[in-house]
């Protein structure tokens, strides 16, 4: 079960990175936003690292040695968020998604999801 959840999370993050890298507007907005983001599924103890550098996003398994932000929740919630099925605001305001980092970085991450999946 946890393997499936881990795979789902990995797929969602890969799709997220791919979507970001194919969105020209996002790449322009993020060209100066160089950050290391640790994504942590606390229920299955699974970690991934998203790196935003020069406008593009890359994904690597495992946790970074030093992060600018930590995005933490259950694998199910993280998967839904990175697939764009759930607005991150929803679990964030419910307290089930925790985003550690500066207010401006937290907001930037939300801008990214808004621009990817705005309705």
């Amino acid at each position: 079960m946890s393997t499936n959840l881990g795979e789902d999370l990995k797929d969602s993050l890969e799709k997220f990175a791919k979507d970001c890298n194919s969105n020209e507007r996002l790449m322009v907005m993020n060209k100066d936003w160089n950050r290391v983001i640790h994504v942590c599924a606390s229920d299955i103890k699974c970690d991934y690292t998203l790196v935003s550098k020069d406008g593009s996003i890359s994904l690597t398994p495992g946790k970074p040695s030093s992060a600018d932000m930590v995005v933490q929740s259950s694998a199910e919630i993280l998967t839904s968020v990175f697939y764009g099925e759930v607005s991150p605001n929803e679990p964030y305001n419910e307290g089930t998604l925790r985003v550690q980092g500066s207010e401006q970085d937290v907001l930037r991450l939300d801008f990214i999801t808004a621009m990817l999946w705005e309705e």
Partner: peptide, 15 residues
Amino acid sequence: MGGVETPSDLSSELK
């Protein structure tokens, strides 16, 4: 619905 559990080793890596 519960909140997020915090693993103890997270704080050491966040700037």
